Each structure stands twice: as structure tokens, then as C-alpha cells.
Simulated scan of single mutants.
Amino acid sequence: MLRLLVLISTLFLASFTAFASSLYNAEVPVEDSDTATELAAKQQAMLEVLVRVSGQSEITENPVVKKSLGSVDTFISSVGYGEKNEQKTLIAGFESSKIRALLIQADATFWGEPRPYVLFWLVEDGANGRNVIWEQSENDMVSVLKAEGERRGLPILVPVGDFDDVVNVSVPDIWGGFVNPLSDVSERYNPDGVVLVKIRRNRLSWQLYPKFADMKYSAPVSGSESGEINAMLNSVVDQIADQYASRTAVSLGNDATNTTLLSVSGLQSSEDYFALERTLKGLNSIASMELETLSKELVTYRISLLSSEDVFNNELTVDRRIRKQDADTEIVDGNVVPLRLNYRWQGIAKLPVPAPVTTETVQDGTSSTEIATEVATEGTEQDIQSTEVVDNGGDDSQ
């Protein structure tokens, strides 16, 4: 039992650090090593990279992209072979500068980093009732979901299902989409967004709360799918990745004509200032920035944007150390025009760390961790039973 809880804690921490796949690398299965097979695999790898980097699932149909596949070797920086799930694979790395140049030619967008971490709560309505699919449940859907996230460059988290999860959220909470308990229990994972997925046989419905901080106060983006489970999960991840990309992706071909002032307050030290500057310089929506003024707790830059102010705001506030404030505005020809964009620096955001695993032997020789797990299991069974009672007298629809 102790080993299991240690494993759960390890999985929790790894969720935030193990998403190491490069935006410009792809691994695709191959049947053999002949020339035609290798060429097709390279082209598939290039399409995966273009979808991941552009943030557009439909870019594979772009005429410029289709034409470029004929010269795929000119975009490749490295190639090799590997193995995944007992299947031989081709691993290709692509030149970032050439991929970005192709996106400009294709009039496509660029979706850079950082990418949002998205927490998925999944409930399956099966023959034995409704059950939550946890990270450590060894359900194939978890590995499929994470593979789809890697394909799109979207870091996906799945709750581990330890004692804290099981006692703080119930199956009816997730199935019913009750945001208060879900928001509270999700906070320990420090996600940028939360997705609720309900699965019943060959049907699936989902709800996305794109900004976790606003989960209790905003309506979700929702959708539904039908068909084979892997295909449904593929479609869900595509739609969610497209949603996030539409909020923060920029067009590399745009001229930086949108110039404005940006002020950030709340800086407490030189470390805060340099951390803020690194964050701003890493944004894809900023073409250039110049320091205007620097005083105690406040810095002002003149920035040139490659995007709209909405896209800039969405990209900047992915970093939860920064919060938007009311802008300084003026009225021009009856329209409200921002004079200065105002934000506040809230300090270094820390990831939550699971409580240390301890054991305490009670009189009958059973450890406290074993008792906790038994209580959690009993709670889950009660949730399923209570849900079945509701189903017998209520609406059975999703």
C-alpha cells in the first residue's frame, strides 16, 4: 500500500515535468525501411509538427503545405528509428526556422510556448455503474488521451485518484458538472484549464473551462462526439487545442503596427523585474519592446504587437503570476481606445506538492494509509450506488 501511494505522488509530480516532447519533433510508426515507406513517414511527421506548431488541425489541407511535402527532406534536421508499443517508428526532427517560414507562406498562425496545462476529469458510465478514470487506474483511455495531447503539444493532466481526490469529489459531482467542488479539488494540480468528459458506450460529451481561475464564474465551451473511443478522444483533444491556439496563436507574417504602452505594478524586487522581462520577451505576440519608465513597484514598456490586444492578453495571462487590471482609455470618434494596458505582478507561482506519505500503525496492526484507502474505496462505491438510485428515477440522458 505504501508503494502505491509513493507511486501516486511520483506520478503527480511527473505530470508537470514529463511533457518533454519538442514542438519540432515527431515519431510515427513504420512497417519497414524501404524508400516509399520512409518518405510517407517523413511526410506524416512533418504534418504532425505543422499541426502542433500552428495550432490549426486543418492546416494539413492547406495548398502550400501540401505542395511542400514533396520536398520534405529540406525541412528535416535529423532522422532516426525507434520503437514504441512494440512497433518500429521513424523519429524526425525539423528545422524550426524553415517550419516557421513555411507557416508564413501558408498564411497560417504560430502557436508558441508556454502551452496551457489542462486537467481532464473523465467519468465512464459502464455495465458496473459510473466510475472515475484516474491516472493510476491503468485504463487505456489515459494513455490514449496523453498521446493525443503530445501530438498537439497540449500538456494533459489526469487526477491521480489518491485519498484527497476521492474524498473531495464524487462521481455525481463530475457527471453533473458541479463546478464548486470540482474547482476546489482541481486547485492542487495548478491547471490552466479544466475539462469534464462523460463517456457512455459510443457517445461522449465534454465541457472545457479554458481559464481555471474563472471556472466558478464562466460558462464552459462544450461539445459531443460519437463513435469509437480513440477517435472520439482524438477529436476532443483537437477541438480543445484549437480553442487554446485561437486565443494565443499569432500570425508570423503580420507587420507590427499595433503599438501601445504596457504598465505592470506590484514588482517587489529585481528578481521580479527580470522574471517579468523574460516572460514578455518570450511572448509570440510581442514584436518589440522598449523600456519607458521604471520606478518602485511599477515598470512601463512601449510594446509593438503582432496580434490583437485580446490575443496578447490571453497569451500573457497564461502565466498566472500576472493579472489584468483596468486599462487607461480615451474616446476617439465614439470608440473606446486603450492608452495603456495595465497588469499586476502577483509573485512567483508555486506548484502544489502532495503531502508526504507516512504510515502509522494502529492497534490491529493496520497502517493509517491502508485505512485511508479503504475509506476512499467505500466512498467511491457509495457514490456509484447513489448515482444508480438517481438514474432509476430520473433522466438517463447525458
Rank of each mutant, 00 (worst) to 15 (best):
L2D: 01
S9Q: 15
T10K: 13
Y24N: 08
A26Q: 08
S33T: 13
E38F: 10
L39C: 02
A45Q: 04
M46V: 02
M46E: 01
V49E: 03
V51F: 00
R52G: 08
R52K: 15
V53I: 11
V65F: 06
K66C: 03
S68Q: 06
L69P: 10
I76T: 10
G80V: 04
Y81A: 09
G82Y: 05
A92F: 09
G93R: 05
R100F: 02
D107V: 05
F110V: 07
P116V: 02
Y117V: 04
F120L: 03
F120E: 03
W121A: 08
G126E: 02
I133P: 09
S137K: 03
D140L: 10
R151F: 15
L154F: 06
V160E: 09
G177M: 05
F178K: 09
F178Y: 13
P181W: 01
D184Q: 13
S186C: 07
Y189H: 07
D192S: 12
D192F: 04
R201D: 15
R203Q: 15
L204Y: 04
S205N: 14
S205L: 01
L208D: 04
D214V: 02
M215F: 08
K216R: 15
K216T: 11
A219H: 05
S222Y: 00
S224I: 07
N230L: 08
M232A: 06
L233D: 01
D238H: 04
Q239E: 14
Y244P: 08
S246I: 00
V250N: 02
G253M: 06
N254E: 11
A256F: 03
T257G: 11
S263K: 07
L267Y: 03
E271I: 11
K281N: 15
S288G: 10
S288E: 14
E297I: 04
Y301H: 10
S304K: 14
L305Y: 07
S308R: 04
D310C: 01
L316G: 03
R321L: 03
Q325N: 13
Q325F: 00
T329W: 01
V332I: 14
D333S: 12
I348S: 12
K350Q: 13
P352Y: 11
V357E: 08
V362G: 00
T366Q: 13
T366R: 13
T369N: 12
E381M: 07
S386H: 10
N392V: 08
G394E: 02
